[in-house]
């Protein structure tokens, strides 16, 4: 069965169709939640921000026009909310919680406890490294590596030229490489 277009669901939701809105949320809840979690660094705050993202979408249904991709619009809302959250957190002096807090367990890598422990350790170092990136580098890395968006969509979401996206992405990747190399976690 062919999926109903995002914008059609949005139009139905605007006219009060709750089922259409629920379908939209289901379609994007995971990528938005992942994005928020990687940007914010802790799962419980990420869920709140993801929820706020969909509520903001609902509030703006009457104003938005189907000019861009729906996902670009939604990630744009999520991006603004996560940046606000990070800014507020800094103002309140709140620190990020443990990098792995609230995350699901590492996918099973067989029955080798050593390998599982090593993968968890690498994951912790990587998340700490991501949290240590400047927000403008972190967002392009997360949007590319975790949300799998292309350069053009990322440029639209963060509001900068594609060339800037390329250079920020290269720097973010290099920072992670350096961090893992320092920990002898790379070849």
């Amino acid at each position: 069965m062919q999926e109903v277009d995002d914008w059609i669901l949005a139009a139905r939701a605007r006219n009060g169709d709750q089922a259409a809105f629920t379908a939209l949320v289901r379609r994007y809840e995971r990528p938005i939640m992942h994005f928020c979690a990687r940007m914010i660094g802790n799962a419980s705050d990420a869920e709140d921000v993801a929820q706020e993202c969909f509520l903001a979408l609902h509030r703006s249904l009457g104003r938005i026009e189907p000019r861009a991709q729906f996902s670009t619009l939604l990630f744009g809302i999520a991006r603004n909310l996560t940046l606000n959250h990070l800014r507020d957190g800094r103002r309140r002096g709140r620190h990020m919680s443990s990098p792995m807090e609230g995350l699901e367990k590492e996918p099973s890598t067989g029955d080798q406890p050593d390998r599982r422990a090593q993968a968890a350790e690498i994951g912790t170092v990587l998340i700490e490294a991501i949290n240590g990136l400047a927000p403008e580098h972190r967002e392009v890395l997360v949007l590319r590596e975790l949300s799998q968006l292309d350069y053009e969509a990322i440029a639209q979401i963060v509001g900068c030229p594609i060339g800037t996206v390329r250079s920020r992405l290269a720097r973010a990747r290099e920072a992670l490489r350096v961090r893992l190399t320092e920990q002898d976690m790379l070849p």
């Binding site: 809840e29 699901e104 690498i122």
Partner: peptide
Amino acid sequence: QLQAVRARLAAIPAPNPPADF
């Protein structure tokens, strides 16, 4: 090395929203 970083990033567990989200 960059390819390895990418592979490790993909392996990081991600939090999923609750079922009734």
